[in-house]
Amino acid sequence: MSLLLDVKGVTKRFGGVVANDAVSLSVREGEIAGLIGPNGSGKTTLFSSIVGAHPIDAGAVLYEGRDISALRIAEIARRGLTRTYQQTRIYGQMPVIDNMRISAPDVKEGILPLFRRAGRASEARARDLLSFVGLYEKRDLLAGSLSFGQQKLLEFAMALMSEPKLLLLDEPTAGINPTLINGLIDRLKRANKELGVTLFVIEHNMRVIMNLADRITCLAHGQVLASGTPDEVREDPRVLDAYLGAQ
């Protein structure tokens, strides 16, 4: 499998705080990669660095072999690299279905396609994806009136609607009803297998990430502590020490 994302020595400072310290990791095409680490270890900052939400201080982010570290967030999104947010971001005053419509991939082409009618295929896809995350019945409600967990699912559906190649998910199961988590893991795996979306997932729920990811990277204090298969990472003493707590 070829590398879809290659993060090379990325450093990001906020004043005197080094949030990411020469972080290097990679995501292979077609896999589900995991990112774990204690609170404040720089996971979300790394996501923001990758998608171009802020400039990085050192290093490079290679996506499909090209350096994207100087590009802005919208330009990176147009190349098929999208993220979701830990604090869910949806368009609250718009109906759920319109949130999906405005996430169609052709809106990334410019403003002229916005005047074209969305094709039948696009409408059908919006409905299918809403069914996929179990929100079809809520399609006419304002997105802001959904519960936090439902907004999280909507944001995931919107991200899939935009047909990314690589999707960065920031704690997809946080705030989701525990009885729905298994269903969500299943949906993430299906999105990966059936829709062919490579996933890179931040997750605090160990059971979820161990089930989900093919490979896991662990961050601590802004540095890469360990990486490998779930079993390798789970048994790495440094990870146990820093993150899971020494026994």
Binding site: R89, I90, Y91, V107, I111
Partner: peptide, 25 residues
């Protein structure tokens, strides 16, 4: 009635999100 109208509303509701979704805000 067009998706241009939806895009305007998207910017109103969350401009950063709209940008992160690739819209030409």
């Amino acid at each position: 009635g067009t998706r241009f109208g939806l895009a305007l509303n998207a910017v109103r509701d969350d401009e950063d999100k709209a940008e992160a979704m690739g819209l030409y805000t």
